[in-house]
Simulated assay, not measured.
Amino acid sequence: MALQGAIPVSHEMVFPHGCYVVGEISPVLDFDASTKDRHVAARDKVSGELMWAVPVMDADPSLKASVKAVAVKIVSGVEPKIPAPPAGMAGLPFVPVVFDGLTVTPYVNGQGRMAYSFKATGLHAAPEQGAKPGRGGVKDTV
């Protein structure tokens, strides 16, 4: 049960400490149309585009471990790809990303508690650490 429609938010509002992809991108299933033997991909109710789930870990150090992992749904006709990690992070298992067109929808979950659903229109590699936002990941030389 949604309390109100999707609310546009910035990536920085939701993930002020950043976030990292911690698994594979997978199609979101339409649980009403799918059966045990036949999986049906879910489509966004507004655009009709396919939806993909991206598991991420919120880098906020103040969060409890149990709430750090979230899934962000990407609304896209094609499967999004996990971007390459910044040069300084090559070989690490987690890729820092930034979500484009991020929205949040509050709802009451099955246990009667407030929960949130995140959707985005895309994702791209986060700027290298120390880079200023909006500078394309170029490090500040000061």
Rank of each mutant, 00 (worst) to 15 (best):
15 F>D: 00
108 V>R: 02
90 A>Y: 04
100 D>G: 14
52 W>D: 01
137 G>D: 10
59 A>T: 11
101 G>P: 09
1 M>T: 03
35 T>F: 03
128 E>S: 02
102 L>H: 02
113 R>Y: 09
13 M>A: 13
110 G>S: 03
118 F>E: 00
53 A>W: 05
66 S>D: 11
101 G>S: 13
49 E>S: 12
49 E>P: 04
110 G>N: 11
72 V>N: 00
106 P>Q: 10
124 H>C: 05
29 L>M: 14
115 A>D: 14
116 Y>Q: 13
69 A>G: 06
31 F>A: 09
13 M>E: 15
50 L>A: 13
130 G>D: 02
89 M>V: 06
8 P>A: 15
76 S>H: 07
71 A>S: 15
3 L>P: 01
77 G>T: 08
7 I>E: 10
27 P>E: 06
59 A>K: 13
32 D>F: 05
87 A>T: 09
15 F>C: 00
61 P>N: 14
98 V>D: 00
61 P>E: 13
61 P>L: 12
113 R>T: 06
75 V>P: 00
48 G>H: 10
85 P>F: 02
84 A>S: 12
10 S>A: 15
103 T>W: 10
93 P>N: 09
22 V>A: 13
17 H>Q: 14
141 T>H: 10
100 D>C: 07
127 P>W: 08
14 V>Q: 11
111 Q>A: 15
140 D>Y: 05
81 K>R: 14
114 M>V: 11
28 V>K: 07
87 A>E: 11
27 P>K: 08
44 D>M: 01
78 V>N: 11
17 H>R: 13
23 G>P: 03
24 E>Q: 14
114 M>E: 10
82 I>A: 02
118 F>H: 12
57 M>H: 13
91 G>H: 08
104 V>L: 09
32 D>R: 10
25 I>H: 03
1 M>C: 06
58 D>C: 11
73 K>I: 02
56 V>G: 00
46 V>F: 07
90 A>N: 09
73 K>R: 15
39 H>Q: 09
68 K>L: 04
34 S>R: 15
